[in-house]
């Protein structure tokens, strides 16, 4: 059983985001890139499956600053193979382009299961999982919260809003979009990551040219007007509390 996990680095929302001079993209100077949280869950799910079934886990990621850290961290968790896709990401690469680049790579790797975070907050042209499934002609199930594997099939639990979920059976190979791993992603001690840096090896594959077709062009990017709608209540704590109680009364809930 071969599991390939696809992980991406995306801007950390803890930092304040700023728009660059072109007005159509984020200013990358101050950005901190971190692993997409849902991809981290996908890695965790893969490791859990490995522990249950003895599968092999390969983690694949675009070569963006910080990628070595996330790959070595994955190795410290138990991933066997680490691959980064080297290419020119500077000019902005969308999910269509990435999925196209990954299609032949995946065909070579011949995974039984491809796991990826169900979405990332920077996706503007759809999420990468189903795009990849489309190009590979594989089935896709998203919003997956648990996976059971048995001879040639997977049973995935997909979540719907309101706590409802559904069990779907699918023949392998399949691409699954992970919403949450069965266990929260485990902690990896720094010493383990350092150890992995010494022992694990990151393979490099060339991306070649990116074909952005399929995604929109951004004409303008901006931050929503701050406090557009809200009337800000200020003053001392006492005043604020009084105003709020006034509002509650007015709205008839007090």
């Amino acid at each position: 059983m071969n599991i390939v996990v696809l992980a991406k680095l995306i801007p950390d929302l803890v930092e304040e985001l700023e728009i660059d001079d072109s007005g159509t993209a984020l200013d990358m100077t101050w950005l901190r890139l971190i692993i997409n949280e849902l991809d981290d869950h996908a890695i965790e799910e893969a490791i859990l499956l490995k522990e249950r079934t003895g599968a092999n886990v390969t983690v694949l990621a675009p070569d963006i600053e910080g990628v070595d850290d996330i790959l070595f961290t994955a190795a410290a968790k138990g991933a066997e193979r680490l691959i980064k896709i080297v290419g020119d990401y500077e000019s902005g690469v969308n999910n269509h382009a990435l999925a196209r680049v990954l299609t032949p790579v995946m065909k070579d790797l011949q995974p039984d299961l491809i796991l990826v975070g169900v979405e990332a907050h920077e996706d503007l042209d759809g999420s990468i999982g189903p795009l990849l499934a489309g190009y590979l002609d594989l089935p896709f199930i998203g919003y997956v919260a648990s996976i059971e594997l048995e001879d040639g099939k997977a049973t995935a639990t997909k979540e719907y809003p309101g706590g409802l979920s559904v069990e779907m059976e699918v023949t392998l190979p399949v691409v699954l979009g992970i919403q949450v791993a069965e266990e929260p992603p485990r902690y990896v001690a720094v010493s383990k990551v350092r150890q992995a840096m010494k022992t694990a090896e990151i393979e490099e594959l060339e991306a070649g040219d990116f074909d952005l077709a399929g995604g929109p062009t951004i004409d303008r990017m901006y931050q929503p007007e701050v406090s557009e709608g809200a009337t800000i209540i200020d003053g001392s704590l006492d005043d604020i509390a009084d105003s709020l109680i006034g509002i509650f009364k007015e709205l008839g809930v007090q």
Binding site: V14, E15, E16, P184, R186, Y187, V190, S191, K192
Partner: peptide, 28 residues
């Protein structure tokens, strides 16, 4: 080493690793 830590502690350690503080706030 085994990753056997309390979830809240895990958050704190992850934050410390990423931001250099346990609050998970930006270093800026």
């Amino acid at each position: 080493l085994e990753g056997d830590v309390d979830p809240q502690l895990q958050d704190a350690l992850a934050n410390l690793g990423r931001y250099g503080n346990s609050f998970g706030k930006s270093d800026r």
